[in-house]
């Protein structure tokens, strides 16, 4: 009897419906895995086609990027340099300012002040990048040009400043979270030894939350590398290995936009550059993200 009852429960429609639903949920969870596989597979496949036509040595170490005009040349270094210029500039702007914001929010601001400032930072972070591009071109660049007359209309300096402003809220909010996770007892211990608030912050709180702070820097840098619209608008479309930040450059992302805006026929070598440059971009950002996760998990100081 008991066994029969068990059987009827197992066979009831409810259980069947339930297993259908669970299969559906599994499929949904698989979508993200499939997306990752698709990105990697696609970039790999098309890049391999590209490297049949262009030798990897020419691509990675060539210093001239002329993909569309003849004679063409596919050295990616100028694009990588453009991206690097903007990213380093942005990091120089955003890291000290973002950390100062985070320290103010977690160590000095009253709860009421925090309640006002945090949403403002979130608003800044939520503004579409195209708006920052507009801001760079119509506000930052004219100011730069009035200070340094030889700044070009499109220049990497203005792009770097604006991308720095863009990633600042990210550093500020993530580092603030990391600093606030440092237990109060550590601060009180330092104060009890007679330290000033400056010493408590720089010698106790920041070192204790360093893994989170470093991870926020890395995430922000990876975001700056992948940033597209602001640099496309502000920094121009000239692949350039110059050291000067006053000149027009082209980043990897800006190149991808340029190719897409033109009517590139599928299958041509210009179309394949899209995947080679995109693949390089993907690998760089992925590596930085993985390192930031490692920093978070390996160097986290755990306090009871």
């Amino acid at each position: 009897m008991a066994e029969a009852a068990n059987q009827s429960i197992k066979k009831s429609g409810r259980r069947f419906g339930e297993s259908c639903i669970i299969s559906w949920l599994t499929v949904c969870a698989a979508v993200s895995v499939i997306t990752t596989a698709a990105i990697i597979g696609l970039l790999l496949k098309e890049s391999l086609v590209f490297f049949e036509n262009v030798s990897p040595a020419d691509f990675f170490f060539g210093t001239s990027w002329v993909p569309i005009l003849k004679p063409s040349s596919y050295g990616v270094l100028p694009l990588v340099w453009g991206t690097l210029q903007v990213t380093i500039g942005a990091a120089i702007v955003a890291i000290p300012l973002g950390l100062a914001c985070a320290i103010y929010l977690s160590e000095y601001a009253s709860p009421k002040m925090r309640a006002y400032i945090k949403p403002v930072l979130e608003l800044l972070a939520g503004i579409p990048t195209i708006v920052y591009g507009y801001f760079a071109l119509t506000f930052v660049t004219p100011i730069l040009r009035s200070i340094f007359p030889d700044v070009q209309v499109f220049n990497s300096l203005s792009a770097a400043i604006v991308v720095g402003i863009m990633i600042l809220p990210m550093i500020a909010t993530l580092s603030d979270n990391a600093l606030r996770a440092v237990p109060e007892s550590l601060r009180q211990g330092a104060y009890a030894l007679g330290a000033t608030s400056y010493e408590v912050t720089t010698k106790v709180v920041v070192p204790a939350g360093l893994s989170g702070v470093m991870a926020s820097f890395l995430l922000a840098i990876s975001r700056a590398i992948g940033e597209t619209m602001a640099v496309t608008i502000a920094a121009g479309q000239t692949p350039n290995l110059s050291l000067s930040m006053f000149e027009s450059i082209q980043t990897m992302t800006a190149y991808i936009v340029q190719v897409s805006l033109g009517d590139t026929p599928a299958g041509g070598i210009a179309y394949q550059t899209l995947f080679a440059v995109g693949g390089l971009l993907f690998i760089i950002t992925l590596l930085i993200n993985i390192v930031s996760q490692l920093v978070l998990s390996k160097y986290r100081e755990v306090y009871e």
Binding site: I39, L42, I225, G226, T253, G278, T285, L286, I288, N289
Partner: peptide
């Protein structure tokens, strides 16, 4: 963490 432009590709 993948840049949005890669999703475009």
């Amino acid at each position: 963490g993948v840049p949005s432009i890669v999703y475009g590709i």
